[in-house]
Amino acid sequence: MRIVLADDSVLIRAGIREILTSHDHDVIRECEDADELVAVVDELVRSGDAPDMVITDVRMPPKNTDDGLRAAIDLRSRHRDLPVLVLSAYVTGPYVRELLSGPGADGAVGYLLKEKVGRVADFLRAVETVSAGGVVIDPEVVRHATRADSPQGPLARLTAREREVLAHMAEGRSNAEIATELFLSGAAVSKHVANVFVKLGMPPDEDNRRVKAILTWFAYN
């Protein structure tokens, strides 16, 4: 996969690059700040050489606030099929919500805590999931954002178990993984997932139901 990587710390960039390149990915460009990231991606897309994915930090120059997130939202709105994985030092719901609710493709987006890169296998799977159009939200952020006590909107229609399954879906887990983690049979998980889709009003012929369900989960959490 051809990846554009943006982080203002040389140290972190080197680490991520090493992990990616030793697993058959290419870091085609590295950027030190958000403006550079936007310019580089725009230029690559213009020259017909669009990257397969962007991995970016949140806090970067020029303003050193949430510039990376802004750049990610901007890029997603203009290059609708570009998968974007945001790496962050912050466990904050609002950032994720903004990223997910911003204009752009439904899906092909992820938000991971930066240190999760160290879980190499998980990180690489997140990269694959996002590039394949999925959504991956860091489990810690999911936990942080979960309001078990008072489900809102359409989520109120779900049972506690279905909400739990949905939270695992938000972390980018497959049905099989959810089955293992929750000690359920594969059939039971499939049934819960199907119920989630029906209760959130997603007909079987709709594309990307999984992603849409996750977006709903985040919108109402």
Binding site: L11, I16, E115, V117, G118, V120
Partner: peptide, 21 residues
């Protein structure tokens, strides 16, 4: 903290991930 210790610790964790792999 963000630019200092936290950054270094993230790098440590990454390096440990590579080490494990």
């Amino acid at each position: 903290l963000h630019d200092g210790a936290q950054q270094e610790l993230v790098a440590v964790v990454m390096r440990l991930g590579m080490l494990e792999a």
